[in-house]
Amino acid sequence: MSGKAFFIDTTLCTACRGCQIACKQWNQLPATKTTNKGSHQNPMDLSFNTYKVVRFQEHMGPDNKPVWYFFPDQCRHCVEPPCKEASEDDAPDGIYLDSSTGAVIYTDKLRKADTKKIIESCPFNIPRADEKSGRLSKCTMCVERVHNGLLPACVKTCPTGAMQFGDRDKMVTAANARLAQVKTRYPRAQVTGIDDLRVFYLLADEPKNYHLYASVDVAPARMDRKMAMKRIARSLGDLSREWNIIHKLAG
């Protein structure tokens, strides 16, 4: 599989949030008004003006000491994006795959599409709409930087090497190699997305301990990918509502 990919090694992420800020800076996105909700995480979620957010989750670990997981959440740039399929009836050119990188890019033509349908199609709960204009936004893979030989802004700013970016096959190799390295310290470690996404996360623990939508099992047995994605997309409407309820409770 050609094109590019991110490899995000959460075992190296210190949640400095350089990536979150660099994303806002490069894309010149305004800050949202936030308050402290009893967490270091802020903003509490992605938004039309927030393409990337580092999610914080704390749990009691097996040795009765806390663990604190950090999850830099962003669009996974699916190889076969359900959002693209969801937009094809209303806005055929609304979403395209960048030919050199494989980045999933939303265009202005997406205005014609049913935003709710697109949002609900995403297994990872990524796209966000602008309440006024109804437009959708999400991570662009900084394609304009990548086309000019630069790293995406978030990767460029990461001090620890938690964020990597490059040719997809090289990222696959890097992710697998790193997984082998960390298995001793984190026996439950896993890499997500390596088969069908362009963002791979190395997680030290079960994905659900990082974020509700950290990973979705997109390919159950005896079902092809497209069918699987559709099924997930359908059930996501419920998940999304559930998430909103959880959110309100937390807030």
Binding site: R17, K24, A31, T32, T34, T35, N36, H40, N42, P43
Partner: peptide, 26 residues
């Protein structure tokens, strides 16, 4: 201290993106 602010915050409290990430005393 937190990662997102510097010293008394005199330089960073006026930075909207940093304030967005750590908006209030906790």
């Amino acid at each position: 201290r937190v990662c997102e602010h510097w010293q008394t915050g005199l330089m960073t409290r006026w930075q909207p993106w940093l304030l967005e990430a750590q908006p209030q005393l906790f």
